[in-house]
Amino acid sequence: MTHINTPAIIAKQLKYKIRGFSGMIWTLMIVQILAVAAAFGGTGGGSMTEPGPLNLHYTTYNAAFIIIATFLWIAISAFIITTRAYEADDYTFITTRLTSHAANASFLFLASIAGAVTAMLTTYIIQLSHLIALDIDLAVGHPLSPGEFLIGTAGITLYLFLIASISYLIGWLFQVSKFLRIVIIAFLAAVLFGIPIASGALESVYSFFVNESSLIIFALKVITAAVIMWSAVYSLTRTLEVRR
């Protein structure tokens, strides 16, 4: 009999996932390249004609496209790893529900960091590519200091992990019960059609996180929410049999 310690197995599962889910990183790159391409034409702009010799045409470029694309990427990634095929991959080797979720949480956290770093770097690429490719008379850049870069990356990482956690929880709710599946779809439909209770609930969750200006407090909020959601997933699946 081999006695096994839980953290060691979680680490092995994480390594296995990093090797096995390399497709997700490719998807991230494609998503971000597409977002760069979409943002290349500019995301806003206008022209000012002042009386006098100055004619100003300006185009604004920002990273919102890339960030939103990265949010979508992590949401979809977190959702699909709750499906049967990914569960089966885990249960080929040594695992329990606890180690499987812990390894998925670690994986999604690393993916969040990767998504945040690349999203921030991609913003630079947009600025650079315009300088090189376009005949720009005057580029008014807003270069980020290393400190700002770090804060930005940390902020996006937290957002990505929050989204991943929500999506993972929704994914498991989908997996464990047809009833919950209907409830979730009904809720999303209600939000979509602007039914006040549903959209109001979503809005208060949204503002709870988004209207937080302090990174530290925001981090605490995200971590608390994540702990609640991951615990919920664990208690939801603790007695769930392997679907094989």
């Binding site: 009999m1 081999t2 096994i4 839980t6 197995i9 096995g20 390399s22 080929t92 529900r97």
Partner: peptide, 24 residues
Amino acid sequence: PFNNLTVSANSIFVDDEMSFPSSL
């Protein structure tokens, strides 16, 4: 054995539905 790490570490279940990441 249900959902037990020690049993999982000491056993292997082989059938035709074993699943692996497609990238490996």
